[in-house]
């Protein structure tokens, strides 16, 4: 027998039962997940959010209000049957603006988390697999980034690039990746010395095969869990920049910027900033609870 014959995964008998096993596994996971009330609440909130993000322009009663329509004769009206969330200082329907703002929020969350993963995961894999001075350098840089409060660094970057929604997203992405490096590096380090990875190496698997077939798939669960949490946190971060006036600029329908604008009308016209805040809260809460639930299912040893 030569060692090319027994590349792991090529043994016919070993591949056959896999689909059924993974089906059973998935069913078990779904059962575990659906037993928890808070996980299901998270799933419901995220589903609602995604639904609104996709269909917002059709759901909104006055879609043109999200793009700077002005009706001064109905400005600052309290919540009513026609305007559920009331109207703002130029008479725009706040419900419509909140619904359409969901799309922006989703874009921000996906972009920031996506870029952070694209930067952080490869660096973490390299640091974990290669070791030596390369790993040392990567981890030191990561540590330095992690030792600055993220929001402050994001503000500094937006300060350098200039305010705006694209720059805000870029800034948040640039401060978000170090967490993934830490996570993936730690996971890779522990996986690297697992018996099955040693076995694969002993059977002649090259470094790339070990990386992509044996290490990366086992890193996926914690990455998925962290990504779900980070969607929420990135949305919160973008709303914070919007509130400070560094992100999306009014009248763009972004929740943080809406709160900031509504602030000037606060004592009497509370609904201007109340409802966008609720939208942020429910969305972030949804992604956090979803992440918690996924962790219980995918990565039970971690808390």
């Amino acid at each position: 027998m030569t060692d090319t014959d027994i590349t792991p995964g090529d043994v016919p008998g070993a591949t056959a039962p896999v689909p059924r096993k993974s089906f059973r596994e998935a069913r078990r996971m779904i059962r575990t997940y659906s037993r928890s009330f808070s996980s299901m609440l998270g799933l419901a909130l995220v589903t609602l959010f995604l639904f609104v993000a996709v269909f917002g322009p059709w759901l909104a009663p006055f879609p043109e209000d999200a793009y700077g329509a002005v009706n001064f004769d109905i400005k600052l009206q309290p919540p009513s049957a026609e305007h559920w969330f009331g109207t703002d200082q130029v008479g725009s329907d706040i419900l419509s603006r909140v619904l359409i703002g969901a799309r922006t929020t989703l874009q921000i969350g996906l972009t920031v988390t996506g870029i952070a993963i694209l930067i952080g995961v490869p660096l973490g894999l390299i640091a974990g697999m290669v070791g030596g001075w390369i790993a040392e350098t990567i981890m030191r840089i990561t540590d330095i980034f992690l030792s600055i409060p993220g929001l402050i660094l994001a503000i500094a970057i937006v300060g350098a690039l200039g305010p705006g929604i694209l720059n805000a997203m870029l800034a948040l992405s640039l401060v978000w990746w170090p967490g993934y490096v830490r996570l993936v590096q730690a996971k890779t380090l522990s996986l690297r010395n697992e018996t099955y990875v040693d076995a694969a190496r002993a059977l002649g698997a090259g470094p790339f095969r070990v990386l992509f077939v044996h290490v990366l798939p086992n890193c996926l669960s914690p990455i998925v869990v962290k990504a779900s949490m980070d969607m929420g946190m990135a949305i919160l971060g973008a709303a914070s920049l919007g509130f400070l006036g560094l992100g999306a600029q009014p009248p763009y329908p972004e929740w943080g910027a809406m709160i900031s604008t509504g602030r000037a009308y606060l004592p009497d016209w509370w609904w201007c900033s109340f409802f966008p805040g609720i939208a942020i809260y429910l969305t972030v809460l949804g992604f956090n609870l979803l992440g918690d639930g996924l962790r219980d299912v995918l990565d039970p040893r971690q808390r």
């Binding site: 808070s38 929420g232 919160l236 709303a239 914070s240 509130f243 943080g256 709160i259 602030r263 606060l266 004592p267 509370w270 900033s273 109340f274 966008p276 805040g277 942020i280 809260y281 972030v284 809460l285 956090n288 609870l289 918690d292």
Partner: peptide, 18 residues
Amino acid sequence: SVSGVALPMFWLGLMLQW
């Protein structure tokens, strides 16, 4: 504890103030 991390603190501050 689940609400605490999800509430935007600037908004919470505004609402408390209001």
